[in-house]
């Protein structure tokens, strides 16, 4: 039974890939580059609800699925903070979303998120995706997982999906800054040079249901 399901899923995903190449009208289960992201309404560590539409002046967003506990998220924490420092004033603020089920990862509970955000003085919202619906809609699979969105007439076009840069070990040894290159291109009104970039991350801990 499970096998049949997997096979069916396999065929669907192969079909999805084939059809996306053929036409842009097929609705995918989650966003690809060029799709428009739905707005969300998630609770920030300060207790307030946050939506993309609250940022009426934003030219776009750097949405980062991240968490307290994943070693890769930790390695990139400072770089995520730097992205907000650099791009928030230019119209592309960072929105961090924590997608893990806190029953599986107690270190990612709302209280722990609040602690981390206070300790490090995050300049950006750190939102809890309690139902995990936002992560699912985006097709986020891991932390950290970045989606650069561009505001096109108050619709949010996905312009980049993937990693922040090409060297998790050392920020000073990075040769390609994928996210910065994408946002810089958008700021210049140019095409994003590289729209996807793979990297290792911790799988999102989905709740069992």
């Amino acid at each position: 039974m499970k096998h049949t399901l997997l096979m069916a899923l396999g065929i669907v995903s192969v079909a999805a890939v084939l059809f996306t190449n053929a036409t842009d009208n097929i609705e995918l289960e989650y966003y690809g580059v060029g799709d428009y992201a739905e707005d969300f309404n998630l609770k920030n560590v300060d207790g307030k609800m946050v939506s993309l539409k609250d940022y009426s002046d934003a030219k776009g967003f750097i949405v980062v699925f991240t968490c307290n506990t994943c070693p890769y998220a930790k390695m990139y924490e400072k770089r995520i903070m730097d992205l907000d420092q650099k791009y928030s004033s230019k119209g592309y603020p960072v929105i961090a979303i924590m997608p893990n089920d806190e029953n599986k990862v107690p270190g990612d509970s709302f209280d722990e998120m609040k602690k981390r955000s206070d300790e490090k003085n995050y300049s950006f919202p750190y939102l809890k995706d309690e139902t995990q619906d936002v992560a699912k809609a985006f097709g986020a699979t891991k932390t950290p997982h970045v989606f650069v969105l561009n505001n096109v007439d108050d619709k949010y076009k996905v312009e980049f999906i993937g990693a922040i840069d090409d060297n998790p070990k050392s920020a000073s040894s990075v040769s390609t800054k994928y996210v910065e290159d994408a946002v810089d291109a958008l700021l210049d009104g140019k095409k994003v040079p590289k729209t996807t970039a793979n990297a290792v991350g911790c799988s999102i801990k989905w709740s069992e249901s």
Binding site: A163, N198, A199, S203
Partner: peptide, 16 residues
């Protein structure tokens, strides 16, 4: 990662 992950499988988003 970006160069080798797709050689393992095109669908691999990078989580382990």
């Amino acid at each position: 990662y970006d160069s080798f992950m797709s050689k393992i499988d095109k669908s691999w988003s990078g989580s382990i």
